[in-house]
Amino acid sequence: MKVLVTGASGNVGRYVTNELLKMGEQVVATGTDLVKLQSLFGETVDKALLDFTDSTTYLKALNGVDRVFLMRPPHLGKPEDLFPFIDAMKQCGIRLVSFLSLMGVEKNTIPPHHKIEKYIESAGIPYAHIRPGFFMQNISGIHSVEIKEKNQVFVPAGNSKTSFIDAEDIGLSIATLLHSPEKYQNTAHTITGSKALDYFQIADILSKVTGRKITYMKPSYLKYRNYYIKNRGLDKAYVNVTVALYFMTCMGTAKAVTTDFTKLTGKQPRSFEEFAVKHINCFK
Score class of each variant (00 low, 15 high):
Val5Lys: 00
Asn11Cys: 07
Leu21Ser: 08
Lys22Cys: 06
Gly24Ser: 09
Ala29Gln: 07
Ala29Ser: 11
Thr30Tyr: 02
Leu34Cys: 02
Leu40Tyr: 14
Gly42Pro: 10
Leu49Ile: 07
Asp54Ile: 08
Ser55Leu: 13
Gly77Pro: 10
Glu80Trp: 12
Leu82Pro: 00
Met89Asp: 06
Gln91Pro: 00
Gln91Thr: 09
Gln91Tyr: 08
Arg95Gln: 15
Arg95Ile: 04
Leu96Thr: 10
Leu102Cys: 00
Glu106Thr: 10
Thr109Lys: 15
Ile110Thr: 12
Lys118Val: 05
Ile120Trp: 01
Ala123Trp: 06
His129Asp: 05
His129Gly: 04
Met136Tyr: 12
Asn138Glu: 13
Ile139Asp: 00
Ser144Val: 08
Asn151Ile: 03
Val155Tyr: 09
Pro156Arg: 10
Ala157Asp: 01
Asn159Ile: 14
Thr162Val: 11
Ala167Cys: 07
Thr176Cys: 03
Leu178Asp: 05
Lys183His: 12
Thr187Phe: 07
Ala188Trp: 11
Thr192Gln: 12
Gly193Ala: 14
Ser194Glu: 15
Lys195Phe: 06
Tyr199Val: 07
Tyr199Phe: 15
Tyr199Ala: 09
Phe200Asn: 13
Val209Arg: 13
Val209Gly: 12
Lys218Val: 07
Pro219His: 12
Asn231Pro: 09
Thr242Asp: 05
Phe247Gln: 04
Met251Ala: 07
Met251Val: 00
Thr253Cys: 02
Val257Asp: 02
Val257Glu: 03
Thr258Asn: 11
Thr259Leu: 03
Phe261Cys: 08
Lys263Asn: 15
Gln268Leu: 14
Arg270Glu: 08
Phe275Trp: 13
Lys278Asp: 15
Lys284Phe: 05
